[in-house]
Amino acid sequence: MNITETARPLDGAGVSAFLRSLPARPLLLGLGEARHFVAELGELRNEIFRHLVEHEGYRSFAIESDCLRGLVVDDYVTTGTGTLDDVMERGFSHNFGTPEANRELVRWMRAYNEEHDDNLRFFGFDGPLEYWAESPRQALTALHALLDGPLPCTRETLDALLGPDDRWTDEATVMDPSRSIGQSADARRLRLLADDMVALLDTQLPRLSPADRERAALYGRTAVGLLRYHHWMADTSPARMGRLSALRDAMMAANLRAVADHGPALVFTHNLHLQRTKSLMRLGDQELEWWSAGAIAGTHLGDRYVFLASAFGTVGDNTPPPDTVEGILSALPWEHSLVDTRRLAEAVAEPAPRVSHHFAYFPLDPAQLGAIDGVVFLREAVRLD
C-alpha cells in the first residue's frame, strides 16, 4: 500500500470524510498535542473546530485548563460578560490564555453566538491543579451557596476550616509532603462536609435550574476531587506521585464525561492525556504509571470516544529519520495531513521510534499506533506561542 493511500489533506472535507469512516459519531473528538504551545497546531485546531461547528453539528470546545476558571470564558462566550482581555487573563490556567490561537478561538466563539441562537459552549476540563493544587474554597463555597437548608454546616464554619488559602497552595508540597495540610483535622472534616453537600445536592436537583444543576455538579466533583488530591499530597509512600497523576486524570475524565452530556465536543489537550494506553513517566528512580483521562473516558463512551494524536515532522532544526513514523509521514504530499492509523499500521512495517531532542516534545510510539484512531500530521512545526 502506498503511504499516500493512508492519508488525506487536513481540510474540512478530509475531517468530514474521516468522521464518516468511523463506526459511530463521536461525542468526544480528542485532538492531542505532541507539544504544548505550537502555534501552527493551534491555528489548525481552530480551523477544524470551525468546520465541525458549521458542518458537523458540534457545539462545545474543551481544553486542558482549570475547569473553574473556564466558567469565566464560558460566560463571555455565551453572554458577553466581561472583556476579551480580562477573560484571557482570568479564564485560563497553565498560561493557556497567552497563545494567539486561543484568543482567536474565544473571539470567534463569541462572534458566532452573537449571530446564532444555538450557543457554543467553552469548557476547561482540568482540575484546579497541576502537581500542586488550589484551595478548595471556591468549589466548596459556591456549592454551599447553591444548596438550601438545612445544610451540614454554615459558611462561617467552612471559612474557619479552610483558613488562609496560602496554606493550601504552597508549591513546596510537590516535593515535600510534610508541608501539606491535606491530612490535617480540618481537611478531614472538610472532606466529610463536601461528601455531605454532594449528597444533599442529589436530593435538591429538582429545585435547581438546568444551569445551576450543571454548575453545582461541577463544584461538587471539584471540591471532592481537590480535597482527595490534597489528602494524597500529604502521603509519604513511594506510590504518592503516581497516585497524584492518576487522580488528576480521573478528575479530567469526570469533567469530560460532563462535557459529553452536551453533545459532540472537540477536546484539545496533550496526547498523553488522551491516549488509550497507560501513561508512563520516570521520576528519579521511580517508574510511574497510570491510566489517562482519555483511557478512562473511552471506557465509559466506547466508540463514541475518538482520539486524534498530533505529530510533527521537522521540529525547529530537528528532522525525523526516514525510518520513523514521522519520517515516513513527511513524504506525504501535503503540509498538513489527516492519517488513518488503521491503514497506516498495515502500510508500514515496524518503524523505528523517534528520539526526541526536546523534553517537551513527545514523538509517536510506533507500538501504540493501534490505540490511536488518526494522526494529525504537520510536516513542520517551527513557531511556538
Rank of each mutant, 00 (worst) to 15 (best):
T6M: 01
P9Q: 04
G12C: 01
G12V: 01
V15T: 02
V15P: 05
L19R: 01
R20F: 07
S21M: 02
S21N: 04
R25L: 10
L31M: 10
G32P: 00
A34H: 13
R35Q: 15
F37Q: 11
E40F: 00
L44Y: 10
R45V: 12
N46T: 05
E47A: 11
L52F: 05
V53S: 08
E56I: 02
E64S: 12
L68P: 00
R69Y: 09
D75A: 15
Y76W: 06
D85T: 11
D86E: 13
F92A: 10
H94S: 14
F96K: 14
P99A: 03
A101N: 05
E104M: 07
E104R: 14
W108L: 01
W108Q: 02
D118K: 13
N119D: 14
N119C: 15
R121Q: 15
F122S: 02
F122K: 05
G124Y: 08
G127D: 09
P128R: 11
L129R: 13
L129C: 09
E130P: 06
E134A: 15
A139K: 11
L143S: 07
H144W: 12
L147E: 06
T154K: 09
L158Q: 04
L161E: 08
G163E: 11
R167S: 14
T173Q: 13
P177S: 08
R179H: 09
S180H: 05
Q183K: 14
A187G: 10
L192E: 15
D196E: 14
M197V: 11
L200V: 03
L201F: 12
T203E: 12
L205I: 11
L208Q: 10
S209N: 07
D212A: 13
A217N: 14
A217R: 15
G225A: 05
L227H: 07
W232K: 13
M233V: 07
M233Y: 08
A234F: 04
S237R: 08
P238S: 00
R240F: 07
L244H: 11
L247N: 09
R248I: 02
D249K: 12
R257L: 15
R257V: 14
V259F: 08
A260E: 09
A260K: 06
H262C: 14
T277R: 14
L280E: 15
M281R: 15
W290F: 10
W291P: 11
G302F: 02
L308F: 07
A311H: 00
A311M: 00
V315D: 07
N318M: 14
T319C: 05
P321F: 02
D323R: 12
T324D: 01
V325S: 06
G327V: 00
L332P: 08
P333T: 02
E335V: 01
S337H: 03
L338E: 03
L338D: 01
D340S: 09
R342I: 10
R342Y: 11
L344Y: 00
L344D: 00
E346S: 14
A347E: 03
V348L: 03
F359C: 11
V376K: 04
R379H: 05
